[in-house]
Amino acid sequence: MLTILFDGIAYGMVLFVLACGLSITLGLMNFVNLAHGVFAMAGGYASAILMNRAGVPFLATLPFAFLIPAAFGLVLERTLYQRLYNRPHLDQVLFTIGLIFMSIAAVDYIMGSQPQLITLPEWLRGRVDVFGVQIGLYRSFIIVVCSVLVVALQMILTKTRFGAQLRAAVDDQRVARGLGINTSLVFAATFAFGSGLAGLGGALGAEILGLDPTFPFKFLIYFMIVVTVGGTSSLTGPFFASLLLGVADVAGKYYVPSLGAFVIYTVMIVVLVFRPHGLFVRAR
């Protein structure tokens, strides 16, 4: 029971790191980036390739799992994404579905369709018994890393100059521009950062979620649930939505395997219909 809760929290934490970039781009630029999972996949593959082909230890690959998708995201944002900021959602959806298709086929072509294996270092494998509760070491590691990230993100948002600019831009782009904030730069930096986080999430989560070329499609729905249920006006909404989703998904699959997905999708619909701005946003 507590093991499941624990696993669910770890799962939810990974989901949050994966999806929070999406939540920010949606809230900030009103851009529906269904291809967010592509960046997560890029991070996962970066980590797997470095580890399996170049022999870099797992932990040392993590910075690259952040930097490579971030650079990738920056280039795409400057060249393509920024052209679509003012288009209808449908165009953005079509465009990003196109990107997903391309990336799936490309990764399949280069790396093959088999799942990638991540070899964890010895000290992260196995479980320990804490007061009768089975605790996975790697999952504890994930929880620690992600918690640090969450706190760091919150600090960046609330304490730094960049965070202030970002929040101003989310609130009202025109006013922000009037205050002399270079919103275009803020957008690019945020997009790159969000992509990097997704990549990091992809690498950290590869062990739990699996990693193969269909990743962007398989987890698309999870990201969208986190964002729609959590709302896009803060980080706390998506954070709690991720935890809830993680625990519900793990518990659902364990206790009522026949109903798990059903319940999650239904909850999403209900939230969308009754709280279109997210479950954790106060109605305006």
Partner: peptide, 15 residues
Amino acid sequence: YWTFWIGLILVILVL
């Protein structure tokens, strides 16, 4: 790998 090309068409179409 044909989905790559469909994806490309879509991206170009939207752009």
